Simulated scan of single mutants.
Amino acid sequence: MVRGVDLDVGPGELFALLGTNGAGKTTTMEMMLGHRRPAEGTIRVLGHDPLRDRRRLAAHVGVVLQESGCSPELTVAETVRLWLRLRGQHAVARTVQALIEELDLNSRADVPVRQLSGGERRRLDLAVALCGDPPLLLLDEPTSGLDPQSRARTWRVLRDRVNRGVTILLTTHYLEEAEVAASHVAIMNAGTVAVAGTVPQVRGAGTLAEAFDRVAACPTTERGTR
Rank of each mutant, 00 (worst) to 15 (best):
Leu169Tyr: 08
Arg114Gln: 12
Asp53Leu: 03
Thr95Ile: 04
Glu67Lys: 09
Ala211Asn: 03
Gly206Asp: 11
Leu139Glu: 02
Glu210Phe: 06
Trp155Gly: 10
Arg36Ile: 07
Arg108Tyr: 11
Thr220Trp: 13
Ala109Leu: 06
Glu222Asn: 13
Glu40Ser: 15
Val64Asn: 05
Thr95Arg: 08
Ala209Ser: 13
Ala217Gly: 05
Ile100Val: 13
Val157Trp: 08
Thr95Val: 08
Thr220Gln: 14
Ala182Lys: 03
Leu138Lys: 01
Arg55Trp: 13
Leu86Asn: 09
Val215Thr: 11
His90Ser: 12
Met32Asn: 08
Val111Trp: 03
Arg94Val: 10
Arg159His: 08
Gln201Cys: 07
Ala109Pro: 10
Arg123Phe: 04
Val180Glu: 15
Met188Ile: 02
Gly88Leu: 02
Glu73Trp: 14
His90Ile: 01
Ser68Trp: 02
Leu139Lys: 02
Val76Ser: 04
Ala211Gln: 07
Leu146Met: 02
Leu84His: 12
Val92Phe: 10
Ala109Met: 08
Thr225Asn: 05
Lys25Asp: 03
Val202Gln: 01
Val195Pro: 13
Leu175Met: 14
Leu175Val: 14
Val199Trp: 14
Arg159Phe: 03
Val128Lys: 07
Ala23Thr: 02
Leu17Ser: 05
Thr220Ser: 15
Pro72Cys: 07
Asp125Ser: 07
Thr26Cys: 05
Gly10Asn: 08
Pro11Met: 05
Val92Gly: 09
Val64Glu: 04
Met32Pro: 07
Arg123Val: 07
Val80Leu: 00
Gly19Ala: 04
His35Gln: 11
Cys218Thr: 15
Gly10Ile: 07
Ala217Asp: 04
Ile100Glu: 12
Gln89Asn: 02
Glu30Val: 03
Asn163Met: 11
Leu82Pro: 03
Ser144Ile: 01
Glu179Phe: 09
Arg226Pro: 05
Val61Leu: 04
Leu99Gly: 09
Arg52His: 11
Ala216Gln: 08
Pro142Gly: 06
Thr154Val: 15
Leu136Asp: 01
Arg85Met: 15
Arg114Asp: 09
Gly197Glu: 13
Val96Arg: 03
Ala217Cys: 00
Ala109Gln: 09
Ser71His: 14
Val199Glu: 13
Pro219Gln: 14
Leu103His: 05
Ala196Arg: 15
Ala186Asp: 09
Arg94Tyr: 00
Thr172Val: 00
Ala196Asn: 10
Leu86Gly: 10
Gly165Gln: 05
Arg153Ser: 00
Gly165Val: 10
Cys70Gln: 12
Ala109Ile: 06
Thr28Val: 09
Asp104Cys: 02
Asp213Tyr: 08
Ala127Tyr: 08
Glu102Asn: 02
Leu175Ala: 11
Leu46Asn: 03
Val202Leu: 07
Glu13Cys: 06
Arg36Val: 08
Met29Asn: 04
Glu13Tyr: 04
Glu67Phe: 00
Val199Ile: 11
Ile168Met: 06
Gly145Leu: 11
Ala190Asn: 13
Thr75Val: 00
Glu102Arg: 14
Ala196Lys: 12
Gln66His: 01
Val202Ala: 05
Ala211Ser: 10
His35Cys: 04
Lys25Ser: 01
Gly24Asn: 01
Glu40Pro: 08
